[in-house]
Design a protein around this nucleic acid. Structure first.
Length: 290
DNA sequence: TGTCGTCGGTCAA
DNA sequence: TTGACCGACGACA
């Protein structure tokens, strides 16, 4: 078995686990007033509590109880209280002093020129592939300048995600090439391989305002969260929180550009392009890794 | 809950 | 350039 195949098999169980995790999140959020216990949830999924325990530990390194706690409103509010620190002004280097930062995914980024953005991807070759991830199937898109897109889907063929992404750069040339995208997928979802010495290269394709918002998101450490309005403030446009929300929503490299760490002022998750359930899952997963 | 003010982004003239 | 339209917001009753 070669190295790539080994890594693939490392990732796959987590990918399968996501189906279970997703159902659990759906159950507790649909019915959170009833506060279903572990036994109830396991029963509804046709699993034993022990099985469920194993699934969670494998997926997030977290017990189901800790995970359920991590997706509550209270927890979101706690994350926001940590925001009192001037997180967004913290550079990557300075941020290294915080322990959780050491586990974060390190990224170098460049933005496309406005001309390239207006051309809607003309002259650009985008290679893509569908890969298992802890949050369902992930559609990875790369250019020769680095990672350009990351989307999620629960559909077997992932066509919904592909159409969503390709409509952003309709003039680009798309080539299915999962051999090329596999190394990216393996790295992105494996915290053990997040290495400041070898930052992940990403290319941000968007309008000027969008790119500034996405850069701000990249400065939020793992396991932390900020509000839309605080991003607007940091950008020097304190009244633009609503526009920030719209720009965050257009983030083409979800998870890597951590749009799931942006919350409403009340701690409410407010929205997520790839589904609120996935946003909860990401926050829960991160709280286990941070 | 609902409503309403506000401000950028986007797209079509 | 302009104007219409639309939010992953936020404040308030």
């Amino acid at each position: 078995m070669n190295i790539a195949a080994t890594l693939q098999s490392d990732i796959t169980p987590e990918g399968d686990d996501y189906t279970t995790v997703r159902r659990v999140i759906e159950l507790i959020t649909e019915d959170y007033r009833a506060q279903p216990g572990l036994e109830d949830i396991a029963g509804q999924l046709g699993q034993s509590p022990t099985q469920l325990q194993k699934t969670f530990t494998r997926w997030a390194g977290l017990s189901p109880k800790a995970f359920l706690q991590a997706v509550t409103l209270d927890h979101a509010k706690r994350l926001l209280r940590q925001e009192a620190l001037p997180l967004l002004e913290t550079s990557f280097e300075v941020g290294l002093s915080g322990p959780s930062r050491l586990h974060d995914l390190f990224v170098t980024h460049e933005a496309m020129s406005p001309g390239e953005w207006k051309a809607r991807g003309a002259g650009l070759t985008i290679r893509y592939g569908l890969h298992p991830s802890p949050f369902g199937q992930a559609l990875v898109m790369i250019t020769d300048r680095g990672l350009a897109g990351l989307a999620f889907t629960d559909e077997p063929g992932g066509m919904d995600a592909f159409e969503d992404m390709s409509s952003r750069w309709p003039n680009a040339h798309y080539v299915e090439d999962s051999a090329a995208t596999t190394p990216y997928a393996e790295r992105i979802f494996d915290p053990k391989r997040w290495d400041p010495k070898e930052p992940l290269r990403v290319v941000l394709i968007g309008s000027d305002f969008q790119v500034r918002v996405w850069e701000a998101l990249l400065r939020i450490p793992m396991g932390c969260a900020v509000t839309y309005s605080s991003i607007a403030e940091k950008l020097g446009q304190p009244t633009a929180s609503r526009a920030v929300g719209a720009a965050v929503g257009r983030n083409p490299i979800s998870f890597v550009v951590p749009c799931h760490r942006a919350l409403g002022k009340s701690g409410a998750l407010t929205g997520y392009h790839w589904g609120l359930t996935r946003k909860r899952a990401m926050l829960g997963w991160e709280s286990g890794k941070a």
